[in-house]
Design a protein around this nucleic acid. Structure first.
Lengths: 194, 194
DNA sequence: AACTGTTTGTTGATAAACCAACACTGTGTT
DNA sequence: AACACAGTGTTGGTTTATCAACAAACAGTT
């Protein structure tokens, strides 16, 4: 049996365990899901579960890894076959996500945001909404994406900075974030950040 | 393991083989369906098929038997639990059929009607339609059922008579069929048929 | 602390499915 | 008639899943 050809039974077992976990995650958070439940829903013996996975964390990780590997392979294949610019590539990738919507929604909802992080995000969002004057002609949904982009980007950059020990001084970080917000990558004068 | 508790793998194998056969029967006649195809669609090894069934005929027969057994059990259970008259029982049975519509349509379509039989039916149907004056108030669909009932009944009775060696003389058969059409079972004077 | 119920993780014997291979049959083509 | 191809039915060794059972851990209740 070649390494590419997985035994049908294994293939089936893994598929139904994965699907069952995803279905359960629609109804409850990951921390509430038990191995017993997954197996009942999959109609698979518990000892079989343990033959494949150490625990439900490993099953989840496997599912996530599949997505990541799909993405990698997808991007690699795409790069090699067609010489398109970055915009088209982004479109294709988004289409791929769209195709995987049901699964991704579930997976992206698993890792719970810290309640503090959510608060930060909410405060920032309220502040932006109250202070920015948005053109009446700007599409509502688009402005929602815009603010989400800015806030998520900022929060994440701040998180990295905090977790990295705050090596850069605050004013430097402020400059960086502000420029990215206003001008994006190409509009930022990187000479400002030697 | 009690006789009631079927091994999960067996249960699964039989289910997917059954489903696969039914799906294939949606697309082609039974005579065109191969064991190889059923197994490919079910993603089950061919030797496994043969471990369960002698051939595709036995698989089909098994599916039909399940329906029949369901019907029997259904009717038995119903009879024991509630003392309703025949009309309500018929209603319940029809509801059961309705619930099994997808499967029954496929199964009832399997045994191909002979082309001759179809011709007979079509000729009779045309004749009835052209000669009978149906009240304008009669529901269209109901009159279709009526003619189908009469024709199917007649054709089947004739078939039995022919296959049985035509023991009864033609005029006797004509009388029987005619009376059944016009008066049904209770309206027929059975003294006419000693 | 003791108790109860549920879930976990593991075990070994058994059952079922898989896999590749083989010889044979039937069909269509040359 | 010979050939090629697809499908059939079978085989034996291997792999995987099942099953019931067990001891331990965990969570909630008293």
């Amino acid at each position: 049996m070649t390494s590419e050809k997985l035994d049908r039974r294994k293939k089936y077992t893994r598929m139904v365990l994965k699907d069952s976990l995803l279905q359960l995650l629609k109804q409850k958070s990951f921390s509430q899901v038990t191995v017993k439940e997954i197996c009942e829903r999959a109609d698979i013996n518990r000892s079989t579960f343990y033959a494949h996975y150490r625990d439900q964390f490993e099953l989840l990780e496997t599912i996530e890894d599949e997505i990541v590997m799909d993405m990698k392979q997808y991007m690699n294949t795409y790069n090699l076959q067609e010489k398109e610019d970055a915009l088209k590539m982004t479109e294709k990738l988004i289409s791929y996500f769209a195709a995987k919507q049901e699964e991704l929604i579930i997976l992206l909802n698993v890792s719970d945001e810290t309640s503090f992080e959510r608060k930060v995000r909410e405060v920032a969002q309220a502040s932006i909404r109250s202070e920015w004057i948005i053109s009446e002609q700007t599409d509502q949904q688009l402005s929602s994406y815009l603010t989400a982009f800015i806030i998520s980007g900022s929060v994440h950059v701040l998180k990295m900075w905090l977790l990295g020990g705050m090596e850069e001084p605050p004013h430097k970080m402020a400059k960086l974030i502000n420029n990215l917000i206003n001008h994006g990558i190409y509009g930022t004068d990187w000479e400002m950040f030697p």
